[in-house]
Design a protein around this nucleic acid. Structure first.
Length: 507
RNA sequence: GCUCCCGUAGUCUAGUGGUCAAGGAUAGAGGCCUCUCGAGCCUCUGACGCGGGUUCAAAUCCCGCCGGGAGCACCA
């Protein structure tokens, strides 16, 4: 898996055109540095996710940087499922292939092709014999522990210099089942005294009996990531590899292999590691919680998956701007999720209608509420008239206020925002005082008449229950609102009865 | 420990020897708004890790130090 941890000449045209007036900010134009040796129309890029779960915010850098350069150079972009057999702790999962495909669709990234490493095993095998012949690879039957120790001390293993024929036969033996898992591996011959201990005769192939989710037990000898990439990057004509700098050592491996094959590989370019503060992202934890039902599927906000962000009303363009703003810097960074929200807010604020919602509601009956005040017309947006208005019935003077507001304003006069001024006595009774606006605290309210119960899913998976204004009764999935003084929300699918369901996006 | 990478405001980023008395974003502070204590608008605060060089001139080049990160798996 190499998608973990992730401006073109212009921003994508999908960004909503800034409307006139309304104080809409023009987003800054972002530019990515040019790629070395990149020719217009001839750039071929690839993104290689390990199919163990949905794509999430940690994958975003790989997705959007590749896509941005693909567009900038009018090139190709492939998804290569990095689905070799994995290990005990890291296994590919069948469902993940489709999840990843859907996630890419969700964020409007459409690859030119999909490839599966598990379909390309013969290609990997075919490239190996020449390495035996040129003495660049060998079969090693050391136990893992011996191998580690030798690597540490820079000691070559006894088999390293056996004759070519022995290695050929041993390789056949690996394929045919003569060796059990762990009993034989293929290693590259670099230099056992290489200053970087991590680079001393690394493993190219190993035996695994795991059943692969796509190809079952058809193969028992599997390549390591670096070898598979070294082959695919040549076979697929990749011109530039963009990946996180955690894979820098893999560069050395790929380059060693290309040079052994007498070929020139693509340019290798890295970005620093990205972590998002406030977002503890663990694909394996998410997988476990999704499977066990603790999480509400991959759209549970706690996964930080693309789908879950979408469900929260976070637009793909916001994620794109967010990750592209980091550029190709090699510095490791930790960014607060707040930055992502700020990007999304620029997109949503100008187009999102306001609605009233109060959490933890208390009923307040206002004594002396004016009889002639039957309804009030409220703007859907404080500055953008084109978003229209709505009428809210207030007859009878019964309101829901947030418990917090009730407590805070007990014994004081305050204004029901956009409506009238009232006073709350110490024992909780409310009475009308006056109508004109004046500089006193303003409190959010929901008219009890017609109010609908609302359940708001939070980022931590909990729910806040409250009451929303009557116009929310007919809400449909996907509608976006700003609950005033609460934040931006997106409507979940609704059920005929029960509360209206929303997902909290961000303030 | 070894190898590699990185170091501009709280955070992210622009900057590739002069136009940088360092630009933008975000966060923070203050203000505005016939009405969002959480949106919007305006203003303000705030940075080149340290020490040596090179140069007429350095955030930009060189060396050292300090600090941070990654790799050292028969995972990806």
């Amino acid at each position: 898996m190499e998608e973990l941890r992730g401006i073109l000449a212009t921003l994508p045209p999908s960004r909503p055109a800034p409307a006139e007036g309304g104080g809409v900010k023009t987003p800054p134009r972002l530019e990515l540095p040019a790629l070395p040796n990149a020719e217009q129309g001839k750039v071929v890029l690839r993104f290689a996710p390990f199919p163990s779960g949905a794509l999430h915010l940690g994958s975003a850098r790989g997705v959007f940087l590749n896509d941005a350069y693909r567009k900038r150079y009018d090139g190709k972009f492939y998804v290569v499922y990095d689905d070799t057999v994995g290990s005990e702790e890291k296994r590919p999962f069948l469902e993940a292939y489709d999840l990843i495909r859907q996630d890419l669709e969700t964020v409007d990234v459409v690859p030119d092709a999909y490839y599966y490493k598990s379909d390309r095993m013969e290609l990997y095998y075919r490239r190996l014999p020449p390495l035996f012949e040129s003495g660049k690879a060998y079969v090693c039957t050391c136990p893992a522990e011996t191998l580690r120790e030798n690597r540490r001390t820079g000691t070559a293993c006894a088999e390293r210099d056996r004759p070519l024929e022995w290695h050929r036969e041993a390789w056949e033996g690996m394929l045919s089942g003569k060796y059990a898992p762990g009993e034989a591996i293929v290693r590259i011959k670099t230099d056992m005294a290489h200053p970087n201990p991590a680079f001393r005769d690394r493993v190219l192939f190993r035996i695994s009996d795991f059943e692969h989710p796509r190809v079952g037990k058809r193969y028992r000898v599997w390549p390591m990531l670096e070898y598979a990439f070294a082959v695919d990057d040549l076979e697929l004509g990749i011109t530039h590899v963009l990946r996180g700098k955690d894979l820098m050592m893999e560069d050395m491996m790929e380059q060693a292999l290309w040079s052994a094959w007498g070929r020139q590989g693509p340019e290798l370019i890295h970005w620093g590691l990205l972590s998002v503060r406030d977002a503890k992202i663990s694909k394996s934890k998410s997988y476990a919680e999704v499977m066990s039902g603790v999480y509400d599927g991959w759209s549970d906000p706690r996964t930080w998956s693309f789908t879950s962000l979408f469900r929260r009303g976070i637009r793909p363009e916001a994620i794109r701007s967010f990750v592209l703003s980091f550029g190709m810097s090699l510095a490791d960074i930790e960014v607060p999720a707040e930055s992502l929200y700020a990007e999304n807010r620029k997109l949503l604020d100008p187009v999102t209608p306001r609605r009233a919602f109060v959490a933890d509601p208390r009923v307040v009956a206002v004594e002396g509420f004016p009889d002639d005040l039957a309804s009030v017309s409220l703007a859907n947006h404080p500055t953008r008239e084109e978003l229209g208005r709505r009428d809210v019935r207030v007859q009878g003077g019964r309101f829901y206020l947030a418990a917090r507001d009730v407590d805070q304003h007990r014994g004081k006069e305050f204004r029901l925002k956009d409506l009238v001024n009232i006073e709350l006595t110490d024992d909780g009774h409310a009475r009308f005082t006056s109508r004109p606006n004046k500089p006193i605290p303003r409190v959010q309210w929901v008219a009890a008449d017609g109010a609908v119960p609302v359940s708001l899913l939070q980022v931590d998976g909990s729910r806040v229950e409250g009451m929303g204004e009557g116009s929310l009764a007919s809400v449909k999935e996907g509608e976006l609102f700003q609950f005033e003084r609460v934040g931006f929300v997106r409507a979940d699918p609704q059920t005929p009865d029960g509360p209206r369901r929303f997902v909290f996006g961000h303030p």
